[in-house]
Design a protein around this nucleic acid. Structure first.
Length: 438
RNA sequence: GCCCUGGUAGUGUAGUGGCCCAUCAUGUGGCCCUGUCGAGGCUGCGACCCGGGUUCAAAUCCCGGCCGGGGCGCCA
């Protein structure tokens, strides 16, 4: 007999035979009758054991440890004595894998566990339906994003994660000891995306891990994260990139709302889809708003973490907007991003922007400098040796279209979409400054 | 890296000098119970992060270490 899921039982006739399997969530033993609650990916079903009918086997069955994997062949019986409306009368029950006692982490216990305990026992933690729902929704979000990119004729690419140079300063690189010369884990696919613009791909995207060896210890940083990057050619300005980003967000969140209802209900979360186009706010205006809001500055007037949160609330209150772009980042704030194009009419401003979601940076992007001589000049300004970027720079010498793109933190997207306190909740097995296992 | 905060049964907690051979819940063992779905009743089990110090007395105070959680810098 073919195994079916808990949710399939509803379709069966009263008295029909079936095979089910899952994890024994709990046993309610009332003496002469007992109930086994069994969980599979789709939900829960209940098996009824009547002592008078099954005799000696009763004692063995009610003593199967919680979270053991069991397989049941039985008959569906409709009844109004249980909340599900039906239960399973067993013909045979097989223990496939017995769980040890006690569990390091209860799945349905009435006590919460600390994050550290949960992540040490992540495979158990993920058995909770609310945790699994996060990853069902993450999958749906990624599906929605890929759906958008396919529709827009993007090519999905894979670029190397072992690289010779970073896109940003060297301090945040994880070193790889193997090549006998400097080798690192990629912080970003930035340079490769651009090389593919030089190759004529015109529209590419990648969803892949990126690595940053920073001493970040916050609820929105991890050492390894999933980065979504796209890059497009023949743009007129960074407005084209923001427009594409705006459509991408709208499309993917719509997809989540349509396809993910069941899981959003489990998490009791409502996802709001922004209207295209997403509002833009130049960096200098952000400063003005923050001044009006009475922010106290320490040092340079820049949008810092506190500023981001204040602006997020401001935009929510005044425009009912969860998303907004901060545009025209000053060149002095983007100095290390040597490939950022600056405004022709005012070189103190870049074409770079961030996309903010619920008061947190989600996306960073802009138009890249595609003119070889200017690019070289910008590298010199920060004393970067062109020799370590030779293969990248060569791309610009033989025909490079105007282009630009973005990087989006997938884990942050999931975190903010589902209002999760910590980015680690959106990652199966997070890697941070101290966690390497499991 | 800096600042704040914490570490007590498998899990989550109470206790902040003697009232503690440590509270409660959950779990787990045993017993009772034929409709549980946060079942119920009776009963047992199980813990003060590590190392120094102060004190008549330390889970509690001090110092150092190790390990969490949060904030900031920074960033996706």
């Amino acid at each position: 007999m073919k195994r079916i899921h808990s949710t399939d039982v509803i379709e069966l006739q009263d008295g029909e035979k079936c095979k089910l399997a899952g994890w024994l969530q709990e046993t309610k033993n009332l003496g002469g009758i007992a109930f086994l609650k069994v969980r599979d990916r789709e939900g829960i079903f209940q098996v009824v054991l009547v002592k008078k009918e099954i005799g000696e086997a009763f004692d063995d069955l009610v003593n199967i440890p919680r979270e053991s994997v069991i397989e049941i062949e039985g008959k569906k019986q409709e009844t109004d004595q249980t909340t599900l409306g039906y239960e399973i009368i067993p013909i045979s029950i097989k223990v496939e894998s017995k769980a040890e006692k006690p569990l390091p982490l209860g799945i349905v216990d009435k006590v919460n566990a600390d994050m550290d305990t949960r992540f040490d026992n992540r495979f158990l933690d993920l058995r909770k339906k609310e945790k699994m729902a996060i990853f069902e929704l993450r999958h749906i979000l990624l599906e929605g994003l890929r759906d958008f990119f396919s529709q827009e004729k993007f090519i999905e690419i894979n670029t190397p994660k072992i690289v010779a140079a970073g896109a940003e300063g060297g301090a945040t690189l994880f070193e790889v000891d193997y090549y006998g010369e400097g080798a690192y884990l990629a912080q970003s696919p930035q340079l490769f995306k651009q090389m593919l613009m030089g190759a004529g791909f015109e529209r590419v995207y990648e969803i892949a891990p990126a690595y940053r060896a920073e001493d970040f210890d916050t609820v929105r940083h991890t050492s390894e994260f999933t980065s979504l990057d796209f890059e497009i050619s023949f743009i007129d300005s960074s407005d084209d990139i923001m427009s594409m980003t705006s459509y991408m967000i709208e499309h993917s969140l719509n997809y989540v709302v349509e396809e993910g209802e069941r899981y959003l209900d489990i998490l009791d979360v409502e996802v709001t889809v922004p209207e295209h186009p997403i509002r833009k706010l130049p960096h200098r205006e952000c400063i003005e708003i923050l001044d009006d809001l009475g922010k106290e500055w320490e040092g340079e007037k820049e949008v810092d973490t506190e500023g981001e949160k204040m602006l997020g609330e401001y935009m929510k209150e005044n425009y009912d907007a969860e998303f907004f772009f901060i545009t025209e980042f000053p060149t002095k704030m983007k100095q290390s991003t040597f490939y950022a194009m600056r405004k022709d009419y005012d070189p103190s401003l870049t074409t770079y922007f961030d996309l903010e979601y619920k008061g947190q940076e989600l996306v960073s992007g802009g138009q890249r400098e595609h003119r070889y001589d200017i690019l070289m000049k910008q590298m010199e300004e920060i004393d970067l040796a062109p020799s370590s970027f030779r293969s990248y720079l060569d791309t610009f010498k033989y025909g490079m279209p105007p282009h630009g793109g973005i990087g989006l933190g997938v884990d942050r997207f999931v975190q903010k979409m589902l209002d999760l306190d910590n980015i680690r909740e959106a990652i199966l097995f997070p890697r941070d400054t101290s966690r390497l296992k499991p």
